[in-house]
Design a binder for these strands. Structure first.
Length: 494
RNA sequence: GGCCCCAUCGUCUAGUGGCCUAGGACACUACCCUCUCAAGGUAGCGGCACGGGUUCGAAUCCCGUUGGGGCUGCCA
């Protein structure tokens, strides 16, 4: 049995009203439904819960809310677990508990509903959805009008069980928003059990939270309107409600809530594109919150010590891919060379790589790695950065070729370089000085002179430093590509 | 429509009545460095939505306006 008491440090700043105090063991939960890829918004909520659980010695409960038969797929459940582990929320950690599956608690949900019915806190209603709407229309007030409140209906096929919302006001105590007050007059008698007897989200969610002894419900703001209903349920079930905390939603450029349909929200996808978990975690934490001090790039250990729900911002936060990328690039650069090389491996050895896998040379890549590390924002970019080293015929960018080879002296310069590189010491300083000298003969600075060589060898105008690249490519291959480019230039009129 | 939430540079934020001439980060611009591109360095651009109060003093407190968002299912 868990006997740990929520650390007073959670409320240590001394400016909190009595209602945030609870002497229940600190137990938080993250309760996603497995209806698709793992959402970045969900990841942030999970991280907020996780940070608190770790600092306060509390428990993070993972509960999979798999009660929507139509939309649930088992593979999404594993996806959630894997994605959580990727961002550091791992079942190996002592603060982690679960996963539990909501579908296995249906009996408890129904039992709770029955208790509510027997206590008179809920009643059955035989109106169909359409009928409810018709009445609402006739009443001029949206929602269910309490038609069956006093009809004394028994349970029966097609009859839903509705909660009898009491008169009065429901005040929700929220750690990020303070007191939020709802007039019960505006809350309809909501459905607990469907016509087929299955429990609804509101009920299942509350019953599970009670069963799992959840002390703090930290979730996205979109649930705030549900909260008075759930709080009434806690009370009706005879349990003191938890401490609530509703964190702002994540929005897109149009300032709409991030949606699976419109926006790129899958954590798995970011991972596949070469975003680092640490960078992702760090960025996600700064959406609605900032660590103290004047840098936002902080290790998770700092997040754990600094993060406070009470400091979370109240307004929606824009999920900015540019800033995420900047964080990611910074985290990539902070990697040790070995770690960087290791992190690149999955991308270099992927099946969709443009070169023949047999031509990939890890030694060559290792030599190129430090030059690539400061030049990529995501790990998957490394492929295009080094492809010319492993491709037999790197594709030539047409525009780049005409631009750099079109100059009056390009072909002459190229042949001179070919001649000189045939005998030059194959070392980057020597290669550089050789080209520099040849360029001078044409009044070209190195910056200009290197362009046609680069395009001839790599197919592009931009890329890693040229002479190091040539060294790695080798004399023979370099010469071969320079020759090919010369021929190609000769074949082009002008 | 109703209920609820929110409002500091373009964006994420610091700020909890005097340390604010409002700080940092991303983005953007310029310059330096430089074999391209990056990285790095320096500088710059840019904000308290508006209107009323309260106060000696307000980005910070109150009210209103405007603007945004969330919810409004026998989905979760």
């Amino acid at each position: 049995m868990d006997t740990v008491v929520a650390s007073p440090r959670l409320y240590s700043l001394g400016r909190y009203p009595a209602w945030v105090m609870t002497d229940r063991p600190l137990r938080l939960r993250f309760a996603p439904s497995p209806t698709g890829f793992f959402h970045v918004g969900g990841a942030r909520t999970a991280l907020y819960n996780w940070a608190i659980a770790q600092r306060e010695g509390g428990t993070f409960v993972l509960r999979i809310e798999d009660t929507d038969e139509a939309r649930n797929q088992p593979e999404w459940t594993q996806g959630i677990i894997d994605a959580l582990a990727w961002i550091g929320i791992s079942s190996d950690d002592e603060h982690f508990e679960g996963p539990y599956f909501q579908s296995t608690y249906a009996d408890a949900h129904i039992a709770a509903a029955t208790r509510l019915y027997e206590a008179g806190a809920a009643y059955y209603c035989d109106l169909t959805g359409d009928e409810v709407q018709e009445r609402a229309k006739a009443n001029g007030k949206p929602g269910y009008d309490g038609y069956s409140r006093d009809r004394g209906l028994e349970a029966g096929p097609g009859r839903v069980l509705r909660f009898r919302v009491p008169e009065g006001t429901t005040i929700v105590h929220d750690l990020v928003r303070g007191e939020v007050s709802f007039d019960n007059f505006n809350i309809e008698d909501f459905v607990l059990l469907r016509g087929n007897g299955s429990p609804m989200f509101l009920l299942a969610n509350v019953v599970d939270d009670i069963t799992m002894r959840i002390s703090h419900v930290v979730r996205a703001e979109e649930h705030l309107p549900n909260t008075p209903k759930q709080q009434m349920l806690w009370n009706a079930l005879g349990v003191e409600p938890p401490v609530w905390a509703h964190v702002p939603v994540l929005v897109n450029e149009q300032r709409k809530k991030l949606s699976k349909r419109r926006d790129k929200v899958a954590v798995e996808q970011y991972r596949a594109e070469g975003f680092l978990a640490d960078g992702m975690v760090n960025y996600l934490m700064t959406l609605g919150w900032a660590p103290s001090g004047d840098t936002e790039i902080v290790p998770w250990s700092r997040v754990v010590t600094d993060f406070r729900l009470e400091d979370v911002n109240h307004s929606p936060a824009f999920f900015d891919l540019k800033k995420l990328s900047a964080f990611n690039a910074e985290y990539i650069r902070a990697l040790s060379l070995d770690a960087f090389i290791e992190a690149c491996a999955p991308f270099l050895l992927a099946p969709d790589v443009p070169w023949n896998p047999e031509h990939f040379n890890p030694v060559v890549f290792t030599a190129m790695a430090p030059l690539a590390q400061t030049r990529v924002t995501r790990l998957d970019e490394v492929v295009a950065m080094v492809d010319f080293l492993f491709l037999v015929e790197p594709p030539i960018d047409e525009a780049a070729f005409t631009k750099t080879m079109g100059g009056p002296n390009a072909r002459e310069l190229l042949s001179e370089v070919i001649a000189a590189y045939g005998t030059a010491e194959w070392e980057h300083e020597a290669l550089k000085e050789t080209l520099e000298a040849i360029g001078e003969g044409y009044q070209l600075k190195l910056g200009k002179a290197q362009a046609p060589i680069r395009v001839a060898v790599t197919g592009r105008t931009v890329g890693p430093p040229l002479f190091e690249s040539l060294v790695l490519l080798g004399r023979d291959e370099t010469l071969r590509r320079l020759q090919a480019a010369l021929q190609r230039a000769g074949a082009t009129p002008g």
